[in-house]
Simulated assay, not measured.
Amino acid sequence: MSVADLIDPIGNSDGAVTLLNAENWMQGRTLYGGASALLAYTHAIRKFTDLPPLRAAQIGFVAPVGADFELRSEIVRQGRNVTQLRSEVISDGKIALTAVWVFGTSRDPNAVYPSAPIGEGPGLPGASPAVDSRHPPSFVSNNFDVHYTADRQDAGKPVIRRWVRLKEPSNTDPISELVLMGDTLPPSAMRVMQRRGPLSSINWSFNVLDTEPVTRDGWWLVETASDHADQGYSSERLRLWNADGKQMLSGIQAVAIFG
């Protein structure tokens, strides 16, 4: 199931949706978080077509999202420059995902401070070997090429950085691809867990740093890094760069750690 096939059933009005071959994007009992977020984002921009570029989002992963659900979106506030829009994915009559999208027009900058370039540490995309995980989630093995970076981290350090690209080009707008790709990696706290156990993303907030993101050969550099893990939770930073080391996305996520 390609990205185009995934979002093809999404219309421009609120209502029920059924995905065909949704199992290709499943992560356990639910759609992979980036895919769920993309469904909500796609509904928002198809229902409201005259929006400025996406600048930020706050997404809550409330409950599992399967192949059958309802979508609804509404404008919360539309100002001179910024429009805030809320989307919800409804499963079995209850909210399964809730998202607030922030769209904003460009203005003459009163502050300019570019994000730091990533440097040469990760190496060239695709130059390092593919990740040799024995049991990758099915949505990863079905849809993504994932390669190690040249600067592989020590096993005891809660940082995961990988080169990632779609196996099949998405043929969507670039922002949609960022929404899909930004949550690809597992939480980095798994690298410092004392016992094996499941992890679950609770939310994901991100800022879009470049509203016209481009990369080479489909490769993006994705990173998760735990700032703090204790009492069954981890606070994770999620970042994404293009193949030339320019940062495209900056985010944070709360993760539940079980076991």
Results as ranks from 00 to 15, higher is better:
86 R>V: 08
151 D>H: 08
254 A>V: 03
3 V>Y: 02
29 R>T: 11
203 N>V: 03
23 E>A: 13
175 I>A: 12
46 R>N: 12
158 P>K: 01
58 Q>S: 15
169 P>F: 08
4 A>C: 03
226 S>W: 05
98 T>D: 14
49 T>Y: 04
90 I>H: 02
197 G>D: 12
108 D>M: 12
217 D>P: 03
58 Q>K: 14
139 F>G: 00
166 L>K: 00
205 S>A: 14
243 A>V: 03
129 P>G: 05
36 S>C: 06
124 L>A: 12
122 P>R: 00
22 A>I: 04
209 L>D: 06
141 S>E: 13
105 T>S: 15
166 L>S: 08
257 I>Y: 04
136 P>K: 02
1 M>K: 07
5 D>S: 12
90 I>W: 02
56 A>V: 02
132 D>A: 15
49 T>L: 09
28 G>K: 01
88 E>G: 04
75 I>N: 04
42 T>Q: 13
23 E>M: 08
199 L>K: 01
44 A>Y: 05
162 R>Y: 11
27 Q>Y: 09
181 M>W: 05
78 Q>R: 15
217 D>T: 06
87 S>V: 07
48 F>W: 07
207 N>I: 01
130 A>F: 10
58 Q>M: 13
171 N>F: 06
20 L>G: 11
230 D>V: 07
124 L>P: 00
31 L>D: 01
238 L>C: 14
4 A>F: 01
29 R>H: 07
238 L>E: 05
180 L>E: 01
176 S>N: 09
14 D>W: 07
16 A>H: 15
156 G>D: 15
250 S>Q: 13
59 I>D: 02
81 N>Y: 09
83 T>M: 09
251 G>C: 06
118 I>V: 13
86 R>T: 09
191 R>C: 04
206 F>V: 05
48 F>A: 03
259 G>P: 05
91 S>M: 11
221 L>P: 00
215 T>K: 05
97 L>H: 00
211 T>K: 10
244 D>K: 10
259 G>D: 10
193 M>Q: 13
53 P>N: 05
212 E>H: 14
244 D>T: 04
240 L>H: 00
37 A>K: 01
145 D>H: 11
175 I>E: 13
12 N>Y: 04
26 M>I: 02
165 R>K: 15
63 A>P: 00
186 P>E: 07
171 N>D: 13
139 F>W: 14
256 A>E: 08
114 P>L: 08
187 P>C: 06
45 I>L: 12
36 S>T: 09
222 V>R: 00
